[in-house]
Design a protein around this nucleic acid. Structure first.
Length: 825
RNA sequence: GGGGGCGUGGCGGAAUGGUAGACGCGGUUGACUCAAAAUCAAUUGUCCACAAGACUUGGGAGUUCGAGUCUCCCCGCCCCUACCA
């Protein structure tokens, strides 16, 4: 071990050369090391079959005009620490970064300024890259991807064609959010305050449009079931399960009858219910206003005008209004009745917007006694409420019931479970129903009437229908257009590029038209982790060799806000590729964790309008990247929301300064037993805490250790060197600099991670807490692993113990070795 | 309505059922300074002049020799989601 003096020249010269500046000059030092890492490609990684791989992934940013947010580095620093530590532990670590570069802001900016999104996006990427590099992350920049580059989206398009070929992509008419003023389709995120356009503030309406859909619902079961095979934090799993919303029940056919008893063209009304056992309590039926029967049977109704009027008003109601309004509205479909297949009773049929076309069959059997929504409707329309489950008080509200069925014919006396089974069995036997599983999850609407996205590589041929492009025709690049506004009828801006739209059918050669919609934002990010494995491949999205070596992602960290969209989409996408034999694992991510948001110092979300935005550039300029990184790890538990606090930031800044100052006390000398104890404690703690994401307490361990080092007059170099190694994942620039000053020619980031020795970390004597009748009365010093008798003897000799026992006799003595003794008297 | 999370000093927060408040911020006092900043040292949960002692993890009950931690009930806050039948 060479400490302080590297042997070249005299000791005096050495000291002079490294004459300590009063203050740690992070500005020059951080730049210096960033340049060295970049020049030497320190973090470049290649396949190495002799080494175990580790793939750490963070969500790549959308390069907005705002620049990097202080929230980004929280996640990036955490996995940078994990990656750096893994590297030091001998793993071959892939820690990549890229840009999710298609998106609305660039397009809206283009509409305003006429600047091509590709140009503004490239500018933004430059800014982001500079900012990310200024923070010293150990990304392999040679693997950087950009989802908006044709080299990348060629493969996104290629994969879309796979979806189409396997029957997973189809066209369907669905309603979208449409702003009549801006003449533009809006994403859900762009609809604000219930039903207002984010851009103009005007009202948004629903509009039917043909859209490409992807059949994610076919994977619903596997997306739930396979969560058992991965290590995701519980709240992520719970949210995904909830979002997919699997519910088991039955589909039942109710008969329909005209007043005179005739059937209604043989039509049956099919409903989905999770409680078929309550069917005897059905007192009416409800259809969604959009239910096809309403239109089809209009001629049979006695009150078509009323019905049409109701449909019209409910169509114009925003989702928010539909949700928030407490009062139930609806219209009876007069002239027809439904026949309950269990009781054979005839009951009225209504339409109401509390029933949604998008879930189940768009029709329900109403059991007002046991469903609050049905109850409210029944009260409003004066319909009978028949309890079929024991318990509760239906004069006040609907209840879930407990115990046996009542008023339920052959189900009477059965509990819920048996009732369900019997009801379904009966329905099956009588041919009017069957068990059925339903999902909340809808198929993925994959079309956007936008410019700045991947063109959908499909051609509509009058002869062949929808035909995908041939592989050699990919990528289908975005055409130049004069302006980026959608056309008046809501067609994508691409529709204006006539030369581009008009093409020939790849199959038959007839004149045909290209699809002008583009893909949603989520497309490129659904598979980017695969591209990182082999980012420059132009023969495949990634080579089999690269995928075999690097997949799966070992640890993926990202925001909770991506749990139900990006994370679910990418799992689905990966499973689809797996089924096509294109990847070799059915799940992409082994482990998923999530960081908490960083709020402004006022406890509110950071935003321009609130004026509480912190710019990472300012922090790096004033405190340095290392302080910034260390602060973001120290500020609170990694998975929880925290407020930004500049004073705490100053605390870690001072801490780094203190460690810097300690260098003056470092000497080449043998460590004492106490020294080794402190060192090994720190090694063990930091190692454990990084692995378990307790970054804040890992930093505390440094501080405790440094407090110990500060108490020494002279610090053995070994102790300081160990500290630098442990700190290097957190504060890499600082660690590199001090490592060099210790006299090493090597880079500390390539050193081996220290291994803690539990024996050496142990204390010789322990402080044992002494309780009398469960109350703390003092402590005593005992040798490590003293016997219970010994500890008891020591405790009983304490005055304070004698005092509290008084004249009582001992009933019980509990000794927890090395921890506590409790004397019960 | 459903799902998830949280509640500990002035503040951020530590605590495998075993000394509550680690570590940091802030405060107080002192040293250095003409002075301030920076730095260093001491101190800092509350009540009490001090000591002794008592109290203390949103509230209440319970399990236990022992509860911030486990169980039940209640209160409050945050996030996601939502007439999902």
């Amino acid at each position: 071990m060479t400490a302080r003096y590297n042997g070249k020249g005299s000791w005096e010269e050495w000291q002079k050369e490294w004459a300590m500046e009063d203050r740690y000059n992070f500005r020059t030092i951080e730049k210096k090391w960033q340049k060295i890492w970049e020049d030497e490609k320190t973090y470049k990684v290649e396949i190495d079959n002799n080494k175990e791989k580790f793939y750490a992934l963070v969500e790549f940013p959308y390069p907005s005009g705002q620049g990097l947010h202080v929230g980004h580095p929280r996640s990036y620093t955490a996995l940078d620490i994990v990656s750096r530590k893994k590297r030091m532990q001998g793993y071959n670590v892939l820690y990549p970064m890229g840009f999710d570069a298609f998106g609305l802001p660039a397009e809206n900016y283009a509409i305003k300024t006429g600047i091509h999104p590709a140009i503004s996006t490239a500018e933004n990427i430059k800014v982001y890259t500079r900012q990310l590099k200024s923070l010293g992350f150990s990304f392999d920049w040679d693997r950087c991807v950009d989802t908006s580059s044709p080299e990348y989206y060629k493969w996104t398009q290629w994969m879309f064609i796979k979806f189409f070929e396997k029957g997973m992509a189809y066209k369907d008419k669905i309603s979208i959010n449409w702003c009549p003023h801006c003449k533009i389709g809006l994403a859900n995120e762009e609809v604000i305050n219930g039903n207002h356009c984010e851009r103009c503030g005007g009202e948004v309406v629903k509009k039917e449009k043909e859209q490409w859909m992807i059949a994610i619902t076919k994977y619903a079961d596997r997306l739930i079931d396979d969560l058992d095979t991965v290590d995701f934090i519980e709240r992520v799993k719970a949210q995904q399960i909830n979002w997919i919303g699997r519910s088991e029940g039955a589909e039942l056919d109710f008969g329909l009858a005209l007043k005179n008893g005739d059937t209604v063209g043989g039509k049956k009304l099919t409903v989905f219910t999770t409680r078929p056992d309550t069917a005897f309590g059905v007192t009416y039926m409800v259809l969604a206003p959009e239910h096809p029967y309403v239109e089809e049977l209009m001629a049979k109704f006695e009150n078509p005008e009323e019905i049409k009027e109701y449909i019209k008003t409910s169509k114009n109601k925003s989702d928010l209004d539909r949700t928030i309004s407490e009062e139930k509205t609806g219209i009876e479909l007069k002239g027809i009745k439904a026949k309950n297949p269990y009781s054979n009773e005839l009951i009225p049929v209504f339409i109401s917007d509390y029933v949604l076309m998008g879930y189940g069959t768009g029709a329900i059997m109403a059991v007002p006694a046991h469903d609050q929504r049905d109850y409210d409707f029944a009260k409003a329309f004066n319909l009978p409420i028949i309890p079929v489950l024991e318990g509760g008080d239906i004069s006040k509200e609907a209840h879930e019931g407990e115990g046996a069925h009542i008023n339920s014919g052959f189900l009477n006396g059965m509990n819920k479970e048996n009732g369900m089974a019997a009801a379904i069995k009966y329905a099956k036997e009588h041919g009017f129903g069957t068990a059925k599983v339903n999902f909340k999850l809808r198929d993925w609407v994959f079309s956007r009437q936008r410019y700045w996205g991947e063109p959908i590589p499909m051609v509509n041929c009058p002869v062949c229908g929808w035909v995908p492009l041939k592989e050699h025709e990919l990528p289908l690049t975005l055409p130049e257009v004069k302006d980026y506004l959608p056309s008046d009828d809501g067609e994508s801006p691409l529709a204006k590029a006539k030369d581009w739209v008009n093409t020939t059918c790849p199959k038959c050669g007839c004149p045909a038209k290209r699809e002008t919609d583009t893909m949603p934002n989520w497309a490129g990010s659904s598979w980017y982790f695969l591209r990182y494995a082999d980012p420059h491949n132009d023969e495949a999205f990634a080579s089999k060799e690269a995928l075999d070596y690097w997949m799966n992602v070992d640890w993926y960290n990202g925001g909770m806000e991506h749990t139900t969209l990006h994370l679910l989409y990418s799992r689905f996408w990966h499973k689809f590729l797996y089924d096509c034999g294109l990847v070799n694992t059915s799940e992409p991510y082994k482990k998923r964790t999530s960081h908490g948001m960083i709020l402004g110092s006022n406890g509110e979300k950071m935003s321009k309008s609130r004026g509480n935005v912190i710019n990472p550039d300012d922090i790096v300029a004033n405190y340095g990247a290392d302080s910034f990184r260390l602060y973001e790890m120290f500020m609170g538990p990694f998975d929880q929301v925290v407020d930004w606090n500049e004073e705490s930031l100053n605390g870690v800044y001072r801490f780094i300064g203190r460690v810097y100052g300690l260098f003056n006390k470092v000497y080449k000398m043998e460590p004492t037993r106490d020294d080794l104890r402190a060192m090994h404690k720190c090694i063990i703690e930091v190692t454990e805490r990084v692995d378990s994401m307790k970054f804040n307490t890992a930093v505390s361990s440094f501080m405790t250790y440094v407090n110990y080092l500060s108490s020494l007059n002279k610090i053995p170099a070994e102790l300081y060197a160990a500290l630098l190694k442990l700190m290097s994942p957190f504060t890499p620039h600082f660690a590199e600099e001090m490592w060099a000053r210790l006299g090493y020619n090597s880079s500390v980031v390539t050193e081996a991670w220290p291994v803690g020795d539990a024996k050496l970390a142990e204390d010789d004597t322990v402080t044992i807490a002494v309780q009398v009748n469960g109350k703390m009365r003092g402590t005593l010093e005992a040798p490590k692993n003293a016997s219970n008798d010994e500890v008891e003897k020591l405790a009983l000799s304490l005055d304070v113990v004698k005092k509290h026992i008084g004249g009582n006799t001992l009933k019980k003595v509990i000794v927890v070795p090395n921890k506590i003794i409790n004397i019960v008297a």
